[in-house]
Nucleic acid binder design. Structure first.
Lengths: 168, 168
DNA sequence: TATTGTTATACTCTATAACTATA
DNA sequence: TATAGTTATAGAGTATAACAATA
């Protein structure tokens, strides 16, 4: 039942396509809003939001990189942009001189606060307006489980390693 | 962040984050596979897959553009790459000389056939391995409804128009 | 040696506008 | 005039590898 000819049945295929289209449209809409309302990409917003949620508004670069899928250099690039705009500051960590502590500035907090209502509003309008409480509970449960499964089973090389691990 | 004004409750926020993470990881995994196994981006795979599904393996550029969110020039760019590799051909439509008919070649069909099993397998492993029949039915129903809602309510300007634009 | 982060570089992708041609 | 598609161009974003500094 779950593997006809090693593939997906019609319902699974439909769910897959629906998921891709929904997330794509949602991503597009949210990105557009963040850009128009705060001149932020979704990645930049994620970085700021994480910092706002962190104790003292600070995180190490490495901690920031976890969850944001990109490479280290990609994070450095984005952090550079945010730094230039005065939304974050970077300073070497006193505890470990190799690390860089990233801190949200007041301007950064203000921008997140400015952008958040509209952001959340788009998500509600697009994603939740056509769902009732039961749908929400079901979706939460399913996606939560899937997320856990995905985190546990990185398909091949979800994240690049620094050292050995070179086979091609 | 815990109480966004007029926004989402904790469960909604959690579902939103879960959706974004799941789709992001799935997109990443699928993209990686397509690139490794067929040197195709997800967009290119979508184009080829649409053509394979189309009658006679042919579609106009405009028809291809619908559903693939990108701009016309973006589609031209991608089609150019596929053309160069001999996976599609392009020829002016006999019916309407303005249109360009895109056709999958045998090589294009072969590549899709080559890549599809692994593609579908990744989706099954990542997305459906942790779901039972009930989950699948619920997810299908919910996402199908959300998709319909999203298609009916483009947030602002989901697709670019040729003529006059807003001034904000 | 391993880890943290930056830089240099090259490449992919996307969007805008100007352009051609057909209807 | 409106539609279909291409081209030129510019910009954002990402990945890789080489690099420096600290543990």
């Amino acid at each position: 039942m779950s593997d006809p000819a090693g593939g997906l049945n019609a319902e699974q295929l439909g769910a897959y396509f629906a998921l891709m289209e929904v997330s794509s449209l949602l991503q597009y809409a949210v990105d557009e809003h963040l850009r128009a309302d705060g001149d932020l990409s979704y990645v930049q917003f994620q970085i700021l939001a994480r910092l706002v949620d962190a104790p003292d508004g600070r995180l190490r670069m490495t901690d920031l990189a976890d969850g944001v899928v990109y490479s280290r250099s990609g994070l450095t690039y984005q952090a550079g942009l945010l730094d230039k705009r005065g939304l974050i500051t970077r300073a070497p960590s006193p505890e470990d001189e190799r690390s860089v502590m990233v801190t949200v500035t007041d301007a950064g907090r203000a921008l997140v606060a400015h952008v958040l209502p509209g952001h959340v509003d788009r998500v509600r309008q697009l994603l939740f307006e056509s769902m009732d409480g039961q749908d929400l509970a079901a979706l939460s449960a399913i996606l939560g489980r899937v997320r856990g499964h995905m985190r546990a089973n990185p398909p091949r090389s979800a994240k690049p390693r620094a050292g050995r691990n070179r086979t091609d």
